[in-house]
């Protein structure tokens, strides 16, 4: 069976109210913490002068070459723990993408998102049209 498509999310969009448990996501951040014995890593990013942290379970992708301070792209499923204010990503893929142009990546993600949303709106209006006919 194929897994669900992992949709791009900005790190600051990953809070428990905004994403569902088990949703497939991809996001990015600077690796600031890694503990192999617990298989836990933390990706940090900044947006509008606020620092965001995404914790990542790395059990599926170990061993990997960890470089503290480098940009990583993670693809995996959301895990929500009871009573916790942050979500965890159980990584299926963790790639080092250090040197990525974050500004352009932002633009690409926003562009793609706008494009898909616009299309979704168009097809919705079309289907409602055909039903009305």
């Amino acid at each position: 069976m194929l897994p669900a498509p992992a949709v791009f999310h900005f790190p600051w969009e990953l809070h428990p109210n905004a994403v569902e448990d088990g949703a497939s996501v991809r996001t990015f951040g600077r690796l600031t913490y890694y503990r192999p014995e617990e298989s836990v890593a933390i990706l940090t990013s900044q947006h509008a002068s606020v620092q965001y942290q995404v914790s990542v379970r790395t059990g599926f992708v170990e061993p990997f070459h960890s470089i503290l301070g480098a940009q990583y792209l993670v693809l995996g499923e959301i895990e929500k723990a009871e009573g916790e204010s942050a979500v965890t990503v159980r990584a299926r893929i963790l790639n080092c993408v250090d040197g990525v142009d974050l500004a352009v990546l932002h633009r690409a993600i926003t562009e793609q998102r706008n494009f898909l949303e616009r299309r979704l709106m168009e097809t919705d209006s079309q289907t409602s049209h055909t039903y009305n006919d």
Binding site: C96, V97, D98, G99, V100, D101, Q112
Partner: peptide, 12 residues
């Protein structure tokens, strides 16, 4: 694609 340049240009 170590710095995602190909993926980004594809998305754009």
């Amino acid at each position: 694609d170590p710095v995602m340049a190909v993926q980004i240009s594809w998305m754009l």
